[in-house]
């Protein structure tokens, strides 16, 4: 049996954050039953293509999936079940700390969700306000406690560096808060100011400061026992995100919902960014395994196998030797290397 990852996109938020360029709409609860219905239809319709597959990982992302009612959640899960959930090794649900209740978390846990990903983003309330988050840091800590009580033993927290006004000291306070909660996994993202977002034009990225914050944060998380296993991801041993690892190791996955991408049977394809027409339209993106292996493999601490590199690629990596870790069999980048990985990878592909 081939293994498959399933991604379900839930493109709704209670309010849109100022930096976010993901496809999502602001809305209130209960608005999206139409959406759920078409999502379920597309999951059911795709099933015949996935004969001979069994599901390895499921990931509900968004948007804010924790806004969906538990009735909707159960209905979507029921649509996925025929894909084969017996061998499921990870079931992640993204949650906004401002939108969870104990009952909701119990429900998710009961129906097989075993990993939560909380968008903490910062432990400093003024920074949360700048970002446009709907929760405070103490609400986030409370939500984390609820999740533990509801039986979640694998929880991830998102943190952002490069928030306007953030300093090394305030980042330390965020990291302190995160570490005090003792999550199994931490995603540590640089703020990217994208065209079309409210942040664009209002703030600019300070590359030097971001570089400093990144290296400092990575150092602290490593010291606290987290393995830096991908550019922006840290995990306690055994707690890497299995679903996300599929993306970086070119394993197959299917994405449902607008803007959700799939890699399946040697093709990349995706549904357009449109709530009305996503289920009927599919666009193709080229799948170039050699290039993508380099581009994605070098994002992880596992790196790329030397035997798969050309001499020219090896020569480029040699030029960047202070940024490269050579384990004998494979080559990966260190944290400084990841910071300039676009420069290195664009020379390799």
């Amino acid at each position: 049996m081939n293994k498959l990852g399933i991604y379900v996109h839930f493109p709704f938020c209670r309010s849109k954050c100022g930096y976010c360029d993901f496809y999502s709409k602001s809305c209130t609860d209960g608005f999206f039953t139409d959406y759920t219905r078409s999502l379920i239809r597309s999951i059911v319709a795709f099933k015949p293509n996935a004969e001979g597959y069994t599901v390895d990982t499921v990931y509900f992302g968004g948007g804010t999936p924790s806004l969906m009612s538990m009735g909707e959640f159960s209905a979507i899960r029921r649509a996925i079940r025929p894909y084969g959930l017996d061998g499921l090794s990870e079931f992640t649900f993204e949650a906004n700390p401002g939108t969870v209740s104990f009952e909701k978390l119990r429900h998710l846990r009961f129906w097989g969700v075993d990993r939560l990903s909380f968008g903490l983003q910062s432990g400093v309330d003024s920074e949360l306000a700048t970002l446009g988050r709907i929760h405070t840091s103490s609400e986030a800590a409370d939500a984390f406690g609820l999740a533990r009580r509801a039986g979640f033993e694998n929880i991830s927290l998102d943190l952002i560096y490069g928030i306007p006004g953030q300093t090394k000291e305030s980042l330390d306070r965020s990291i302190d808060l995160a570490l005090s909660l003792s999550p199994e996994h931490i995603s540590f993202y640089g703020l990217k100011i994208e065209p079309g977002t409210p942040f664009f034009g209002r703030y600019t990225e300070d590359d030097d400061l971001q570089a400093e914050l990144y290296l400092h944060g990575a150092e602290r998380l490593k010291a606290a026992g987290y393995e830096h296993y991908e550019v922006s991801n840290f995990a306690r041993p055994g707690f890497r995100s299995k679903h996300n690892m599929r993306y970086w190791t070119l394993e197959e996955y299917i994405g449902f919902g607008p803007s959700a991408h799939s890699l399946f049977k040697g093709r990349r394809f995706y549904h357009p960014n449109d709530l009305e027409s996503f289920s009927s339209e599919i666009e193709e993106g080229p799948f170039e395994p050699e290039k993508e292996y380099i581009m994605l493999g070098l994002r992880t601490s596992d790196g790329v196998k030397k035997e798969l590199l050309t001499d020219a690629q090896k020569a480029v990596l040699k030029k960047y030797s202070p940024y490269v870790i050579d384990s004998g069999e494979s080559i990966s980048l260190n944290a400084e290397g990841w910071l300039i990985s676009n420069r290195i990878i664009s020379e390799l592909i």
């Binding site: 993202y189 590359d207 030097d208 550019v231 799939s262 890699l263 910071l339 300039i340």
Partner: peptide, 13 residues
């Protein structure tokens, strides 16, 4: 100092 894509998941590749 910095030239990196912080996020690279399914949809970004």
């Amino acid at each position: 100092r910095k030239d990196v894509l912080a996020k690279c998941y399914g949809g970004d590749i």
